[in-house]
């Protein structure tokens, strides 16, 4: 039945959109969303290798992911609290990915990419402001 539910509570249709009388707790709906996404990823990877994933496997991967998420969340919270913050930052995520070298490097690169973009965006906005300032000065 979880599978049927997952069909209409997918990731494309935002979890927030469904009205409450669908009578599913938030956790249930999140589980369904995870199940749906796992199903899609498995289907895509299976097609490349011309192999099918049984529904049992998809459900098992979804359940494992859900529980792994629990572990990640608790870790992130503890890391943030250790750094005397109440907001989880990218530094905490980097710590959460420390166990595997390849994953850790990948996450660090991704984080660096995101930082770079943030800097570029800031540069752009300050650049615009500066040009506007000079325009105003010229008018004066």
């Amino acid at each position: 039945s979880l599978y049927l539910r997952a069909c209409y509570i997918n990731v494309e249709c935002d979890v927030a959109v469904l009205p409450p009388h669908h009578a599913m707790a938030l956790l249930e709906r999140l589980k369904a969303a995870v199940h749906y996404t796992v199903g899609r990823i498995c289907q895509k990877m299976g097609e490349d290798q011309r192999r099918r994933f049984s529904r049992q496997v998809v459900a098992a991967i979804a359940e494992t992911t859900f529980r792994q998420c629990d572990i990640f969340a608790k870790d992130l919270e503890a890391f943030a609290r250790h750094a005397k913050r109440s907001t989880v930052s990218t530094e905490d995520v980097k710590l959460a990915a420390r166990r595997s070298t390849a994953l850790s490097i990948y996450i660090q690169n991704k984080s660096e990419e995101l930082n770079q973009e943030q800097r570029d965006l800031k540069k752009k906005s300050t650049g615009k402001r500066k040009s506007r300032d000079t325009e105003e000065e010229n008018k004066e």
Binding site: F72, L76, E77, A80, R81, S86, T87, V88, S89, T90, D92, V93, K94, I107, K110, S111, L114, N115, Q118
Partner: peptide, 11 residues
């Protein structure tokens, strides 16, 4: 406890 935007993307 809150989750930062970039942290969400990474997760």
């Amino acid at each position: 406890t809150r989750l930062g935007g970039d942290a969400t993307l990474l997760m």
